[in-house]
């Protein structure tokens, strides 16, 4: 491609930049307010009010928190490996946000419709585990180290179950592109893959909770045992970046559940725009995350590992075999 060729592709490139800009900004706002949403939901579930002081019913709380985190001192332990300590939270955020590129939000809108969309998300979620491992190692603190070892083992184990639960979806849709998967679920609520793949849905939901280190699988950051796990030594905006990565990860996992099992942008009532359905499903799923957190106590570590390896992985494998058989017959 010569210079004129580059100029000819400029409008397309600009559109991609614009789409990325919009999506990332919306995600950032979403992260700020999903923290507020969580505090409110958990508060009311525990018969409290949640944040009330900043703004009407605490609506400005996320902004106050963000400003506070930005201006706090960035403390680095003297024995830390500085370059790795600096870069670890950035890896986490970048991996979580880049996954957004392939999520189809409504008909025809995704930043990049890759034909390896599902694999791309799995690849990035495995990169996300680097943030946890490296931050724990670079902090040279025992709590951070234990937290990161726990988390690495947990994320790697549950990644297998998650990846295999999605194989059934790829088999049914005949494609790994996320927009093809949504297209395969069009035509009525009963075409959604949650009805054809209930077992895979169950495994995916559980694995998604473990992947994002949320309660009841939040052993990497079990406050009562290891202070805060891998980000114990972090402060200021770097601590904020870990938070951002966790909530962005939750958004991506909820979006994956909506796209792969709940029909993405399609809905039962015609005339409602696709983005409304999509966001409705995503926020429903995020609410489910909070609900589980408020309801269930934390697992013990050996229970978590045996659950992952002895129940979820065999279930996911059985699901692949059954789906394959049904597809052939």
């Amino acid at each position: 491609m010569s210079l004129t060729g580059i100029i000819a592709t400029l409008p397309e490139t600009l559109v991609i930049f614009l789409k990325t800009f919009i999506a990332v900004n919306i995600l950032m706002l979403h992260i700020a307010y999903v923290v507020y949403f969580e505090r409110k939901v958990i508060g009311h579930m525990q018969a409290r009010l949640g944040p009330m002081r900043v703004g009407w019913h605490g609506l400005l709380q996320p902004i106050a928190d963000g400003v506070k985190l930005f201006f706090k001192e960035d403390i680095i332990p003297s024995s830390a490996d500085k370059p790795i300590f600096y870069i670890a939270p950035v890896i986490g955020v970048v991996a979580a946000i880049s996954s957004l590129a392939v999520i189809p939000m409504w008909d025809g809108f995704s930043i990049a419709d890759l034909n390896i969309g599902l694999l791309y998300i799995l690849a990035l979620s495995s990169i996300g585990s680097y943030a946890i491992i490296l931050s724990g190692w670079a902090s040279t603190s025992k709590y951070a180290f234990i937290g990161s070892l726990r988390s690495a083992a947990q994320v790697i184990s549950y990644e297998i179950a998650m990846g295999m639960s999605l194989v059934g979806i790829m088999l049914l849709a005949g494609s790994a592109s996320l927009s093809d998967i949504v297209t395969a679920q069009q035509g009525g609520v009963f075409n959604w893959f949650i009805f054809k793949q209930p077992l895979a849905f169950f495994v995916f939901v559980m694995a998604a909770i473990a992947e994002t280190n949320r309660a009841p699988f939040d052993l990497p950051e079990a406050e009562t045992e290891i202070v805060a796990g891998y980000f114990t030594e972090y402060s200021g905006i770097r601590f904020g970046l870990f938070f951002m990565a966790e909530y962005a990860g939750m958004f991506i996992m909820s979006a994956m559940a909506a796209v792969c099992f709940l029909g993405g942008w399609s809905g039962p009532i015609p005339g409602v725009p696709g983005i409304v359905w999509f966001l409705f499903k995503v926020y429903g799923f995020i609410f489910f995350y909070f609900w589980i957190r408020a309801t269930l106590p934390r697992y013990r570590y050996d229970q978590l590992m045996s659950l992952g390896w002895k129940l979820f992985i065999p279930l996911a494998l059985a699901n692949i075999v059954i789906t394959g058989l049904v597809k052939i017959l």
């Binding site: 694999l119 791309y120 799995l122 690849a123 495995s126 790697i156």
Partner: peptide, 10 residues
């Protein structure tokens, strides 16, 4: 994708 999942991820 396999390069990232297998080499970088595992």
């Amino acid at each position: 994708a396999a390069q990232i999942i297998v080499y970088a991820g595992a």
